[in-house]
Computed example of a mutant assay.
Amino acid sequence: MVERRPLFNFCCHLLLILGVISIALPVWLAVVATTHENHDFATSTPLWFGDLGFSIFKDLLSGHTAFSDKSLSINGLLLNSFIMAICITVGKLTISIMSAYAVVFFRFRGRMIAFWLIFFTLMLPVEVRIMPTFEVISNLGMLNSFSGLTIPLIASATATFLFRQFFLTIPNELVEAARIDGAGPIKFFFDILLPLSRTNIAALFVITFIYGWNQYLWPLLITTDTHYFTIVMAIKQMTGVVDGVIEWNKIMATTIIAMLPPVIVVIAMQKAFVKGLVDSEK
């Protein structure tokens, strides 16, 4: 019998409500700000909807309005962010799953040394190696390019480690049965291992897509051409007005638009994402 503890339940619900409010309030303020004129922000922050409605979203996405910097296009920024996020995601998953496959199922000299060298890169944050990486990208002539935006961020020790841990749970009997049936390494990988890894791939797809979409420091460092700006870094550029008024309503609308793709990905892949992280067999 479960003991009823009304006070404890009340405190838990109160903490949950406060947590939801603390997370939802900035989003609410951003949504409300898109419905007001710029002069409404001169004295205070509006807490309720204004007279503009949601026309700013339509104008931004249709290209009928522009920021102080005329070269910034919301559709172009979204496309650049999507290209960067999807290339990083596909690259990370491909390299990580192949690396983990080689480490777990092949016997070669120094394989564990190779794995631990990959694992030790987790101790080096991006900020530590960002200047050497920038130097390499600059010498290769990859500044202001999609290859420069994506290739340095593709390698992932975390994804390699997670795939390795899952592959270690594959029973040896399954590997032996595949070998007896004549399945070579490539056939075993594509016909058996990949289908078994669907939930892991889905979970890591969500994580790496959000990681790629939210990149700010690296694109800011290697891009000076507005044609390669991503929507996350462009939000900061929109506030850099020298002579003029900061268009807060458009900036908030752009912020809301930038939030939508990761939210859509999480919602669309929610079941596979949760299963890939909490599956009892992992």
Rank of each mutant, 00 (worst) to 15 (best):
L162N: 08
L162K: 05
L162C: 11
L162A: 08
L162R: 09
F163Y: 13
Q165D: 05
Q165T: 02
F166W: 01
F166L: 00
F166N: 00
F166K: 02
F167T: 13
L168W: 08
L168E: 13
L168A: 07
T169A: 02
T169Q: 10
T169H: 09
T169M: 07
I170E: 05
I170T: 12
I170N: 09
P171I: 12
P171V: 04
N172I: 14
N172E: 13
E173H: 12
L174I: 11
V175W: 02
V175C: 10
E176I: 15
A177V: 08
A178W: 00
A178S: 12
R179L: 01
R179K: 10
I180C: 02
D181K: 12
D181N: 12
D181F: 12
D181H: 12
G182V: 14
G182N: 08
G182F: 11
A183S: 09
A183P: 00
A183D: 06
G184F: 15
G184K: 11
P185F: 08
P185V: 05
P185Y: 11
P185T: 05
P185R: 13
I186V: 15
I186L: 14
I186D: 11
I186W: 15
K187T: 12
F188M: 12
F189H: 07
F189R: 08
F189C: 05
F189A: 07
F189D: 00
F189V: 03
F190W: 15
F190G: 09
F190M: 08
F190D: 11
D191F: 14
D191H: 15
D191N: 13
L193N: 00
L193Q: 03
L194S: 03
L194P: 05
P195Q: 14
P195D: 14
L196G: 15
L196F: 14
S197P: 09
S197L: 12
R198V: 01
R198P: 00
T199E: 09
T199A: 13
I201W: 06
I201V: 13
A202S: 15
A202H: 06
A202R: 04
A202W: 10
A203F: 09
A203C: 10
L204G: 02
L204D: 02
F205C: 13
F205W: 09
V206M: 01
V206T: 07
V206N: 05
I207K: 00
I207Q: 08
I207E: 03
T208D: 06
F209V: 07
F209D: 09
F209I: 10
F209S: 07
F209K: 14
I210F: 02
G212A: 01
W213D: 08
W213M: 04
N214E: 09
N214S: 14
Q215H: 10
Y216R: 04
Y216D: 03
Y216T: 07
